[in-house]
Simulated assay, not measured.
Amino acid sequence: MKTDDIARHNARGEPTGTVRLVVTDMDGTLLTPEKQVTHATLDAMAKLRARGVPVCLVSSRAPHGITMYFDALKIRTPYAGLNGAVIFDADGNMISSLCLEAGAVRAAVDMFDVHEVDSWLFCGNDWIVRDASAGYVPHEKRVIRTTPHEVKDFTPWEGKVGKLTGSSADYDLLERMEGEIGQMLEGQASVARSAPYYLDITPPEANKGHALRELGRLLHVPVEEIACIGDMRNDIPMLAVAGLAIAMGNASDEVASYAHVQTDTNEADGWAKAMEEFVLPRVPAAGA
Rank of each mutant, 00 (worst) to 15 (best):
M1N: 08
K2S: 14
T3G: 01
D5G: 03
D5L: 02
I6D: 06
H9G: 09
N10P: 00
G13P: 02
E14S: 13
T16A: 08
T16K: 01
G17Q: 14
V19T: 11
V23H: 07
T24E: 01
D25N: 13
D25T: 12
G28F: 05
P33K: 10
E34V: 02
Q36W: 06
L42G: 00
A44V: 04
A46R: 09
L48M: 11
A50C: 02
A50F: 00
G52V: 10
P54A: 09
V58F: 02
V58Q: 03
S59Y: 04
S60I: 05
R61S: 09
R61F: 03
P63E: 03
I66M: 04
A72V: 13
I75F: 04
I75Q: 05
R76W: 07
L82M: 12
N83V: 09
F88L: 04
A90S: 11
D91R: 11
N93H: 15
S97D: 10
L100C: 01
A104W: 02
R106A: 14
D110E: 15
D110P: 05
M111G: 04
M111A: 11
M111I: 15
V114T: 14
H115I: 01
E116V: 00
V117H: 04
S119A: 07
L121H: 01
C123P: 04
G124P: 11
N125H: 13
N125G: 08
A134F: 04
Y136S: 06
V137N: 02
E140D: 12
R145G: 02
T147P: 05
T147C: 09
T155N: 06
T155I: 05
W157Y: 15
E158M: 15
G162Y: 12
L164F: 01
T165Y: 07
S168G: 08
S168C: 14
D170Q: 06
Y171K: 12
L173F: 06
E175D: 13
M177Y: 11
E178R: 15
E180H: 11
I181P: 05
Q183S: 12
M184V: 11
E186S: 14
Q188C: 07
V191D: 05
R193F: 03
S194V: 13
A195F: 08
T202Q: 08
P203S: 11
V221A: 09
P222Q: 00
V223K: 02
I226M: 10
C228Y: 10
R233K: 14
D235A: 13
D235M: 10
P237Y: 13
A242F: 07
G243N: 05
L244Y: 03
I246C: 05
E254R: 14
H260V: 04
Q262S: 14
T263I: 03
D264E: 15
N266S: 05
E267A: 15
E267L: 13
A268G: 01
G270A: 13
G270R: 13
A274C: 01
M275Q: 09
M275D: 04
E276R: 14
E276I: 08
E277S: 12
V279D: 09
V279C: 08
L280D: 09
L280I: 15
L280K: 12
P281A: 00
R282I: 06
P284I: 03
